[in-house]
Nucleic acid binder design. Structure first.
Length: 270
DNA sequence: GTCCATGTTCTTTA
DNA sequence: CTAAAGAACATGGA
């Protein structure tokens, strides 16, 4: 469900409802959703106040008042919400954090497919050692350097979180369309001006998606339970056979690295 | 029953 | 050795 625009929207809707609130009770529904799995989450979280919520790549970082931290990754179907403790519990609710506030709210983490999870960091500061730069702060020279190392198709490189952190299947396809680059283009064959265009295209695509609060394809909701609207503005993703919004040629869908990949064969020639 | 899905990681193949 | 392809994870909707 979540790529950078969706994760950022979750963070933005979560922050005003949890920052400054004390955690009074913790319920972890299942242990295999937590890494490391032997952390006593109830012990480390109960009584702490949430000082901040932020995003790094697709990770949602929680900072506590004692400077310890953890992050939640939504995987494909993860969902965070703040609601009343008396509200019906959705199936596959894996974590509940009671918050000290009017209306007796709790933070809930639901994830049917369990590709997401909770990572306890404690005081360590290596939460993003394995992630590439933030795409919204990417400089073209930096992207050129990251891409020069490999021959694989550019679409696959964009999905690699160690190259750029936050793009997923939707925004990789949309960014390549915006840059006019064919998804199968070997990364090391991209010209300098193509990489510059791609760098700009990634930013404009993500900013547009952020303005529209992300894409809801199936079940994505922000922390308030609201859907995104950007799916209506997708130019290629999910539009196989439909006319390209620029040139009217039918949008093509191929499988690349096991992921569906959408592009306009005429606007994104090889 | 089949296929597909916004993600990541491990294994197999070339 | 490396890179790319494929499978796996688990669930639900079309």
């Amino acid at each position: 469900m979540p790529e950078l625009p969706e994760v950022q929207t979750v963070v933005d809707t979560l922050r005003p409802r949890v920052v400054g609130r004390r955690i009074t009770k913790v319920h972890l529904g299942r242990h295999d959703i937590l890494t490391p799995s032997d952390v006593d989450l109830e012990q480390v979280l109960t009584g702490r106040t949430i000082r901040d919520v932020s995003r790094r790549g697709k990770r949602i970082l929680f900072l506590l008042d004692n400077a310890e931290r953890f992050y939640i990754h939504l995987g494909m179907t993860g969902h965070l919400s703040v609601e009343s403790r008396s509200a019906a519990l959705a199936p596959h609710t894996h974590l509940q954090l009671h918050l000290e506030a009017r209306g007796a709210p709790e933070l809930r983490f639901v994830d049917p497919r369990r590709f997401g999870g909770i990572w306890w960091l404690g005081n360590s500061d290596d939460e993003d050692d394995d992630l590439g730069p933030e795409p919204l702060r990417l400089r073209p020279a930096q992207l050129r350097r990251l891409l020069s190392k490999t021959k694989r198709p550019i679409k696959s490189a964009l999905l690699d979180q160690t190259v750029v952190a936050g793009l997923g299947n939707i925004y990789a396809d949309e960014s390549l369309f915006a840059a006019g680059i064919h998804p199968l283009t070997p990364t090391n064959l991209l010209k300098q001006d193509q990489v510059s265009r791609l760098s700009r295209a990634i930013k404009t695509t993500l900013r547009r998606a952020l303005r529209h609060r992300g894409s809801t394809l199936r079940n994505y909701r922000d922390a308030n339970g609201d859907t995104g609207n950007f799916q209506k503005l997708h130019r290629v993703y999910g539009r196989e056979g439909e006319p390209c919004r620029k040139c009217r040629s039918p949008v093509q869908k191929i499988v690349l690295g096991g992921r569906s990949t959408h592009f306009c064969p005429s606007c994104q020639s090889r």
